[in-house]
């Protein structure tokens, strides 16, 4: 019963501080969006380069892997002395963390495009660039998008840590709540974040299904 009561208290806290909540939620979403956009802008071309120049692939992938293995808190802590306090620093830390899922999926997506399809395209007189733009990227899009989706969900969670370097977001309530043993405040910050992650995941799943819905499913049948 007491858990339910705490939940209600959390709801009350949220309603009483609704204006502040909106500000924090907006900060949180902006943190996620900006770092994700940056990650997509960097990871997709990097994936293309990795597939095109096979020798670079392992080094590119290991950079991404290393970025992922550093604990989130450490990335945040490392960003602070270099980029200082505040929003920019937080975005950079989140960006580093968001790279890998997009990078690996871009590489996997491009590599799974059937060799015969590429040969047919080249044989028909497409340039390397045209093959990439008209054949490989569109065919890899659902897989790349799945990577973006994973990355977004992770970043929504990671963005809570932005509070430590003054990046704002819902982490403000959660971490202050932990420090002050204020459970309603923790819940008021944590639950909306969880809901945000679930919502974004479903939205992306829907888009993914839309773009993957035409012709991308039974590859095995289509090439057989």
């Amino acid at each position: 019963m007491s858990e339910l009561y705490t939940l209600v208290e959390g709801g009350q806290y949220l309603i009483e501080n609704f204006d502040e909540f909106l500000t924090l939620l907006r900060e949180h979403i902006i943190l996620v969006l900006v770092s994700e956009l940056a990650a997509i802008t960097v990871a997709v071309p990097l994936g293309v380069i990795a597939v095109r120049y096979n020798r670079l692939k392992s080094s590119i992938l290991s950079v991404g892997n290393v970025a992922q293995t550093i604990p989130t808190l450490a990335v945040i802590a490392l960003a602070f002395p270099i980029f200082g306090l505040g929003f920019n620093s937080a975005v950079i830390a989140l960006f580093v963390y968001a790279l890998l899922p997009i990078l690996t999926n871009t590489i996997a997506g491009l590599e799974q495009v059937d060799e015969n399809t590429i040969e047919a395209a080249e044989g028909m007189g497409m340039t390397k660039w045209e093959v990439l733009r008209k054949i490989q990227l569109p065919m890899a899009l659902p897989v790349i998008f799945a990577g973006i989706r994973t990355s977004v969900v992770i970043t929504v969670g990671t963005a809570y840590l932005a509070f430590f370097i003054g990046g704002g977001g819902l982490g403000v309530w959660v971490i202050s709540g932990i420090n002050l043993f204020n459970t309603p405040q923790i819940l008021a910050g944590a639950i909306p974040g969880a809901l945000l992650a679930i919502t974004l995941d479903s939205v992306f799943a829907f888009i993914e299904h839309q773009i993957g819905g035409e012709g991308h499913h039974d590859q095995s049948i289509a090439t057989g």
């Binding site: 059937d114 015969n116 399809t117 590429i118 040969e119 047919a120 395209a121 080249e122 044989g123 028909m124 007189g125 497409m126 340039t127 008209k134 054949i135 569109p138 065919m139 899009l141 035409e214 012709g215 991308h216 590859q219 289509a222 090439t223």
Partner: peptide, 20 residues
């Protein structure tokens, strides 16, 4: 290369249709 290939039709065994 590009010009030559665009003038020559090409059919391969696995067809290589663009599924998208």
């Amino acid at each position: 290369v590009t010009e030559l290939r665009r003038d020559i039709g090409y059919v391969i065994q696995e067809i290589g249709l663009f599924n998208h």
